[in-house]
Design a protein around this nucleic acid. Structure first.
Lengths: 186, 186
DNA sequence: ACTTTAACAGACAGGTCTGTCTAGTGTAAG
DNA sequence: CTTACACTAGACAGACCTGTCTGTTAAAGT
């Protein structure tokens, strides 16, 4: 394997933490899957909390890439805004989708761990993106539209996880379209 | 105290489980707050899982009461539908609001505990209520509108918990109103 | 008066968790 | 060749967890 211990740890943590929860999964499971000694984990990430933060930072980055890639497939401002929901549709269609990693981690974490900051950062980025795209799409009140779309976005991930509703993203997308129409002066 | 050990246990569990999570809080904390011996807990609820299920069942019941009370304050079908979001606004305005108890518990729980069934039951009830109210309000496709409103509903609880956005319920309510208008043939 | 019942306090077993520490192994650079 | 470094394996400490068990107390039913 050409990967470093650091990468293998992060990969193992990503899979296990996302699928079973950051609290449920113990250090031993992570190092076993990564094929790494416990001391290496503590030398590399300092603590379990440090590993969790790295996991969330990595998640943030990969979500950012996925979403912006979808957005940049389009030139039309409306299509660019709606592309965020296309990215969401892809995500929840994955066979091992377990909801939003940040929502889940935040529900499990104690308030003093660095988790809340990581989630705030991620959510701030999503909100900012939706606001920018709403503005470019000509929405009358971009902040308001972005906040509304955020409700749909989060609601979709909840419905997908808890009700196994894979069509939620389409529903959110078409609703977003209608809201965008209503919010765009002509 | 005129309450039974059973009630005190449920009250203590409700506060602690909701505020800190079902996984984080241990049995000892619960019985200490309830002022009850450990054996009593196990005689009464069988296991921690049993107590968690009782907590969620109780939560389901109290949510049901809160929401139906708001709905029944109105006669107008539109107002009845929107009243669900009034109940949500009340909830998230509470100083110790920590999001939807079912979303949180489900994120913490292992898939085989009875938690997933309890959440499915609750969500089924909410969905059914929204469907009925949508139908009575004259929506063209009540199931579809209900599912869309569910996205707003869940999204609101997420925004309230994670972004400390107390205005999310108003936003969801006015969005729901617009969607209802659009979905009602005249 | 006697017995049953429900509750109490708290020790205990057996397991899991995080984090530290010791000791050994391989590898690459000087 | 040797020195430095990164890693491995695994024992260990100390805490916490669920669940069981013993023994005691107090009230209520018969």
């Amino acid at each position: 394997m050409a990967t470093t211990a650091r990468e293998r740890l992060l990969n193992a943590a990503t899979e296990l933490f996302y699928e079973e929860g950051v609290h449920t999964v113990g250090i031993d499971r992570v190092i076993e899957r990564a094929g790494v000694a416990k001391a290496t984990l503590y030398n590399t990430y300092g603590s379990k909390d440090g590993l969790i933060r790295a996991y969330l930072a990595d998640r943030h980055e990969s979500r950012r890439r996925r979403i912006t890639a979808k957005v940049e497939q389009h030139q039309d401002p409306r299509a660019r805004l709606l592309a965020v929901f296309d990215a969401l549709a892809d995500s929840i269609a994955a066979p091992n989708y377990h909801g939003c990693a940040f929502v889940n981690a935040s529900a499990e974490a104690s308030p003093d761990s660095g988790i809340q900051e990581a989630t705030a950062e991620y959510r701030g980025w999503v909100r900012g993106l939706l606001t920018d795209l709403s503005r470019e799409a000509g929405a009358e009140d971009p902040e308001r539209l972005a906040r509304t779309l955020m409700l749909l976005y989060d609601g979709t991930s909840i419905s997908a996880r808890m009700d196994h509703d894979l069509t939620a993203a389409e529903l959110a997308r078409s609703t977003a379209e209608a809201l965008l129409d209503a919010a765009t002066p002509r």
